[in-house]
Design a protein around this nucleic acid. Sequence first.
DNA 1: AAACCGGGGAT
DNA 2: ATCCCAGGTTT
Length: 344
Amino acid sequence: MNYPYVTEFRQSLVDWFNAEKRDLPWRHTTDPYKIWVSEVMLQQTRVDTVIPYYNRFMESFPTLDLLAEAPQEYLLKHWEGLGYYSRARNLQAGAREVLENYGGVVPDNRHEISKLKGVGPYTAGAILSIAYNKPEHAVDGNVMRVLSRVLDIHDDIAMPKTKKVFEVAVEKLIDPEHASSFNQGLMELGALICTPTSPKCLLCPVREYCTAFNEGEPDKLPVKSKKIKMKHLTYDVLVCEDENGRFLMQQRPEKGLLANLWQFPMIDTSQSTVENFKKEFTVNVHAEHELLTFKHVFSHLTWHINSYYMKCESFAQGDWLSREQIERLPMPVPMLKIWEEVKK
DNA sequence: AAACCGGGGAT
DNA sequence: ATCCCAGGTTT
C-alpha cells in the first residue's frame, strides 16, 4: 500500500469496526483477565462455539484469583467439549504466574506477558491491544488472510516463517491511537467480509486500498500449501456396570491426546482383545450387548469406535464410579456420546 | 520446520 | 469429503 493511504486505511477500518462490530460477551469489558480467557478460548475455535463456554466460565471464575485456585477437574469440566484441553491447564498456570510474579496484574508489555504459559505471539498482542490499547501486532489466520489480499502477499501461510512477514506488515499499518479497534477490525473483517471463500468485496470498507481487489484475485489468496495424512485407529470401548450400578472408569495419561480426561476402558484392537481385558481386570461378565458404533474425527487421526455394555461383577482394581460421580468428570466428546446412550 | 493437540461448522 | 477456524508447545 502506498504510504499516503495508510492513514485513510486505518480510519476506514476502525470506523467500520466501531459501526458494524458484533455484540460479543468479551466486548463488554477491557479487563485483561477476561480478554485473556476469551482469546485462549478463541484459539482455533469459532465465536459461536465459544460464547456459551465463555459465559459459563465467567460465572464460575469471574476473577483471576478464582481461576488460579480452582481444582483442575472442575476447571476441565468447564472446558469439556471445547477441545485442546491443554489450553485450560496452561491458562490456569498462567493465572498462577500472574499472582506470584506480577501481584495479580496481567503484564502490559510483550516481554513479560509472553512468559506466561499458553501466551504466544498472537495472544500476547491480542491482550495488549484489546485490554491496554497498545499498538502491538496480533496475527492470526484471519489477519493473514485479510492482509494477504490487501497487500497482495503470496507467501505460503503454511510456513511458520511467513507469519513474520505479516507481523512486520501490521507494525507498519496499525493505528497507534486505536490499536484495539484496528486489530479487532482486521479480525472482524476476516470473519464477516474477507472470508476464506466468496469474500464480500463489494461490502468491504477498505476495498479501495486492497491490491487483490483492484489488481489481483482475492479468491486465490492466501496461498496455503500443506496436506496431512490421516491415521486410523480402531477401539473397543467397554461400559462395565457392576451390581451396585457403578461403572469402571479410567483417567487418560497426563500428557498427550485428551490429557487427564476420563473415559470408559478403551482397547486398541491392534494391540489387545476384550478377552485379555477381562482377564486383566478379572471381570466376570453376566450379560453384554452392543451400544454405538461410530467414528470420531480429530484434526490428525480418526477413531473407529465399537462400544459395548457389560453387566459385570466388580473387583477391587480400577475406579468403579457412580452415575453422579461420572457426571462430574471431564470426558471427551466420544465418551459423552456413549454415556448418553447408556443413560437411555 | 514439523508434529502434536479437539471439535464443529461451512462449503 | 474437505477445509479451516481470534494458535501454542514440543520435538
